[in-house]
């Protein structure tokens, strides 16, 4: 049984002096250890949802539960120190060094200084910054992409079980963005946070999401795994959002683990595999490896363990399923 860590029940937000709700009666839940991606056009209410979870915005009606507890019963500053938040505008403190920015929450939580210093070094390495070079710098001395990395490190600092990430890789070019996404997915394999991730880029949503919530105009349009959304768009809005190249998106963006046959289902198949890829690599890597090794099946590994298998036939079946109802 998977545990629902975050639950939103009929959440609605009408900002003062506006008529149309920014978020309109939305209900969903996020399982522990999953990345849930909110995707939709600008102004559809993604940021507002995130900010209701850590109480930067109070809902007009509805309830939010974290770990079964209504967030309204938790002191809001207390709550926020337990939830990592990467804000859309980055918002590094310009008068503090990178080291101090990253150490902000641990310092609020009164960690011993030595532990903070050690944690900062560790985090900067995790997000791909050289601690020796960047720790003493100030935000203005960094590029946009480096600032975003610091923003992610700051949110991770006190090792919060929950992360809210609002377009965390928005300020970088597509190549760097791809790399940051890959690095983050790899990191997530180890840390297994419960993550609410906002983007307006459907490709990023498919790639990063264990679960996707598609929104439009404050309403929840569709929710499901990337596979479910790709193969069964509920209406024209979702269809247009994912575009005509669904098959390509499947190969390009979907993680191998989302299409694999779990080793628990067919243990025998795993023994036959002689070539392997990582669970978080895209499906196209499976094809690549199969072609190189002249095999029609790859094993899927998470760390050193083989967790499943993926065959040529499986992939073809999925692509057919996805493209089947295309006009």
């Amino acid at each position: 049984m998977l545990e629902k860590l975050i639950q939103l029940h009929q959440i609605k937000k009408v900002f003062p002096n506006t008529n149309i709700p920014a978020v309109d009666e939305i209900t969903f839940s996020i399982e522990k250890g999953n990345i849930c991606v909110f995707v939709g056009p600008s102004g559809c209410g993604k940021t507002t949802i995130l900010r209701m979870i850590n109480r930067l915005v109070e809902p007009t009606s509805g309830n939010i539960f974290i770990d079964g507890e209504n967030v309204l019963n938790v002191d809001s500053d207390e709550l926020r120190r337990r939830i990592g938040y990467v804000i859309q505008q980055i918002g590094l403190l310009p008068h503090r060094t990178i080291e101090q920015n990253v150490g902000l929450v641990p310092r609020l939580l009164k960690w011993p200084e030595a532990k903070i210093t050690q944690r900062v070094v560790e985090l900067l390495e995790i997000v791909g910054l050289d601690p020796a070079e960047s720790a003493k710098k100030y935000p203005y001395q960094l590029s946009g992409g480096q600032m975003q990395r610091v923003g992610v490190a700051r949110a991770l600092a006190a090792d919060p079980p929950i992360m809210l990430m609002d377009e965390p890789f928005g300020a970088v070019d597509p190549i760097v963005r791809g790399r940051l996404q890959d690095e983050f997915l790899r990191l997530q394999q180890e840390v297994k946070k419960t993550i609410c991730f906002v983007t307006h880029d459907i490709n990023e949503a498919i790639k990063m999401g264990d679960y996707i919530v598609v929104m439009n105009g404050g309403k929840l349009v569709q929710q499901g795994t990337p596979m479910e959304v790709l193969s069964n768009p509920v209406n024209h809005f979702v269809k247009d959002l994912i575009g005509d190249d669904r098959g390509v998106k499947l190969l390009d963006l979907t993680r191998a683990e989302s299409l694999m046959t779990a080793v628990t289902e067919s243990p025998a198949a795993a023994n036959d595999c002689f070539c392997f890829i990582d669970a978080i690599q895209p499906v196209k890597m499976a094809l690549e490896v199969m072609m190189k090794n002249d095999s029609d099946m790859v094993g899927i590994r998470r760390g050193k363990n083989v967790v499943g298998t993926l065959s040529w036939a499986d992939i073809k079946k999925h692509i057919h399923k996805i493209s089947g109802d295309q006009e």
Partner: peptide
């Protein structure tokens, strides 16, 4: 910059900490 204050709030700084820090 209001976004810096917002980030501070989001990290869990109290109003007094936002003023002084």
């Amino acid at each position: 910059d209001p976004w810096v204050i917002d980030a501070g709030k989001g990290m869990g700084l109290s109003p007094a900490q936002i003023l002084y820090q």
